[in-house]
Nucleic acid binder design. Structure first.
Length: 648
RNA sequence: GGCUGGGUAGCUCAGCUGGUUAGAGCGCUGGUCUCAUAAGCCGGAGGUCGGGGGUUCGAGUCCCCCCCCCGCCA
């Protein structure tokens, strides 16, 4: 069976981040598994290098565009090599064969009547040199990026008849429920298509860094627009439009994408393929995003996870295991060192690594490291059966890309091993002279480890190779067939005494993200508070407690809030102070809080302030807030209190 | 605002077409073994299954209303 697996091609406008690594790890896992079970496999990844942004970025650095693209593309490729990603091809959209293939596809679509010339009309920002849809414009029609006025501009463009494929696509989704994974994403795509599809502008004349139209069309000004160019890579990599020798790998089995680009892969891409008369991929798998310590990653926060950094400190395969195990496919995941360390200690050190160590120790004492499976079936057929049931169920999870379930199940095999040792206590049997039984238990566990390692291999290739080596075998399609499919046992071998594979990790090995450090600081031990004898507060301007209580502070609940027209600072609030009717309070906090975000929340109000008028509107109180150079924040009760509760 | 999906133990989640005392992993905790990486194994605590109505002999599971969260669209 042929099995083609792809990652998206990564845009060369920045360094590889954890998201890129995640997609690539999943794809690599699927590819390795496919090879292991004996499929003819082709695994494609690469870089997307065309477009105006790349052209501009290169210009800024005063580099030839190609040179710029070469450099960034190489950083991706190097990272994958460092991570031992087993790609069969690394495609670049600047490859000549790719360009040729895209042109061939364009011609074919043109011939089929799916491409026509018209005008692209939209709101154009001259300064940003880009078009924006109506919905993205600012209130007055300004550019969402720079705020300047936009103008309606007409640009000559070729269009792809996407609208024609509305029905065929819907029918396809209907007939192939497994096309879009996870299934929850399927609804989104379907409802989008049901909402109607507009034809797609697929060429541009405003920049030149891209694939030009086929010469026969004689349109030197036109360049292919990003998605047509980029999506085609999946077939041009196989030689579409040039040497088509590898085209029999098409259709792809799994095409992995981030959830942000699902629409392009689940709508445009299949439509293009339909137009070209090519079959559609079996699965488009959309995975989620990663946050760090519960927060969105961003350059400005300085909390971006650098996959190279994590791998350097914790090891690529541990990192990889963590990402696969931690998150259900499609869901967003959270990266934290705590979670990573917990996973490593609990799953890798305790369950797996320690189990291997246990049998190394026993075999050393009981049989001079020699392990023989001869009596395993006699004494442990139950354990073997249970393990085989688990091992043979794993394939199902892979089909739905449920890597975390796959691993969760696989781990039960280690539990069987740990329990068996406990239950059969070989150390007791040895004392009783029942050596056969003791050694059978050790051999059982060796076999369980061997089998589990085979199934773990696609996720932790090098680690499992080490385990296999210690257990005197090699992980190959042959050993997969022998140990998993045919439920065979290991030949007699001498186990290698190796140091613990997964030493426990006690402290974070990396520097924490800036925010996280602040949050964790209070966990440090608190020194005992000394009793202060003399006040160091300046006596100037002090008031008595009675004077303080002349101010009535109350907790209020914001019932409603809206912007004050013509004011950039003021919000008009309706605040419930537990009185017969709510107060109207005008607060100068609009720059920091949206009206919407306040509704239903609680604030601290000066309740006995003489009413005042602000911009002609009555204000019956004041909201307490704290302000410093970083902005303003409201003073609120830590927990919800009854409206009108007094503060003091 | 429209449409999905979801709100179940401290945390992350499983619970299919309604049926015995609501589950798993991690965490916490008591015990126990000693081959082992302060690992393993056994046990325990902890949940009015978002709220309120309803259908039913019986509802986490079905229906209605409400609240809240994520996502997609506008």
């Amino acid at each position: 069976m042929k099995n083609y697996i792809t990652t998206p091609i990564y845009y060369v406008n920045g360094e590889a981040h954890i998201g890129h690594a995640y997609t690539t790890f999943i794809a690599d896992t699927l590819a390795r598994h496919s090879r292991l079970i004996g499929n003819e496999t082709y695994f494609l990844t690469g870089t997307d290098e065309h477009g105006q942004k790349i052209e501009e970025a290169a210009k800024k650095l005063e580099k030839p565009t190609q040179e710029f693209a070469d450099e960034i593309s190489a950083t991706f490729r190097n990272l994958w090599d460092e991570f031992d990603i087993s790609y069969d091809q690394f495609i670049r959209t600047t490859d000549e064969t790719h360009k040729k293939g895209v042109q061939a596809a364009f011609l074919k679509m043109h011939e089929n009547g799916d491409i026509y010339k018209d005008f692209y009309e939209g709101n154009y920002c001259v300064s940003c040199e880009s078009f924006f849809p109506e919905s993205q414009l600012m209130d007055g029609g300004g550019c969402p990026d720079c705020g300047r006025a936009t103008t309606i501009v007409k640009e000559e463009s070729y269009f792809f008849r996407l609208s024609k494929y509305e029905k065929p696509l819907l029918e396809y989704y209907e007939a192939h429920p497994e096309f879009i994974l996870p299934k929850s994403r399927r609804n989104e795509v379907i409802s989008f298509v049901k909402g109607g599809l507009n034809d797609l502008s697929v060429t541009r004349t405003s920049f030149s860094w891209g694939v030009h139209l086929p010469e026969s069309l004689n349109e030197p000004k036109h360049v292919m627009y990003v998605w047509l160019d980029a999506l085609m890579n999946y077939v041009t990599a196989l030689g579409y439009g040039s040497d088509e020798a590898k085209m029999d790998f098409w259709p792809a089995n799994v095409q992995l994408v981030g959830k942000d680009i699902l629409r392009f892969h689940a709508i445009y891409w299949p439509a293009f393929l339909m137009s070209l008369g090519l079959p559609l991929p079996k699965h488009i798998g959309a995975h989620g995003w990663w946050t760090r310590d519960g927060e969105k990653m961003s350059k400005s926060k300085g909390n971006v996870v650098d996959p190279r950094e994590v791998s350097k400190h914790y090891g690529v395969e541990n990192f990889r295991y963590f990402m696969m195990r931690e998150v259900p496919f499609g869901q967003d995941g959270d990266f934290s060192q705590r979670a990573l360390i917990d996973r490593m200690n609990s799953d890798l050190s305790n369950d797996l690594g320690n189990l291997l160590n246990r049998i190394i120790g026993m075999s050393e004492k009981y049989s001079d490291f020699v392990i023989d499976s001869i009596n395993v079936e006699k004494y442990h057929s139950k354990e073997l059966d249970d393990a085989h049931t688990i091992l043979s169920s794993l394939e199902n999870y892979l089909g739905e890309l449920q890597l975390h379930r796959y691993l969760e199940e696989l781990w039960k095999v280690f539990t069987i091993g740990n329990k068996a040792i406990e239950e059969h206590a070989p150390w007791v049997k040895i004392k009783e002279g029942r050596n056969d039984e003791a050694l059978a238990t050790v051999a059982l566990v060796a076999n369980l480890l061997a089998k589990a390692s085979v199934m773990l291999h696609s996720i932790m290739p090098s680690t499992t190779a080490t385990i296999a080596d210690a257990l005197g075998f090699e992980i190959t399609t042959e050993s997969y067939t022998k140990l998993i499919l045919n439920k065979g046992l290991l030949d007699t071998f001498t186990i290698k005494k190796i140091p613990p594979l997964f030493p426990r990790v006690d402290e974070p090995l990396m520097q924490e993200a800036p925010k996280a450090m602040i949050e964790e600081a209070p966990k440090v031990e608190h020194p005992v508070l000394e009793d202060k004898k003399e006040s160091t507060v300046s006596l100037e301007g002090l008031i008595t407690i009675d004077q303080f209580f002349q101010t009535s502070l109350k907790i209020g609940t914001v019932l409603n809030a809206q912007e004050v027209p013509k004011s950039s600072k003021l919000l008009k609030l309706q605040v419930d102070l537990g009185e017969d009717s709510p107060r109207q309070i005008i607060a100068g906090i609009r720059e920091y809080y949206s009206a919407e975000s306040l509704i239903g929340t609680q604030v601290c109000v000066v309740a006995n302030l003489k009413p005042a008028k602000l911009m002609g509107m009555l204000s019956e109180g004041m909201i307490l807030a704290a302000k410093d150079a970083d902005g303003l924040c409201l003073i609120r009760p830590e927990k919800t209190r009854l409206s009108g509760s007094s503060v003091g």
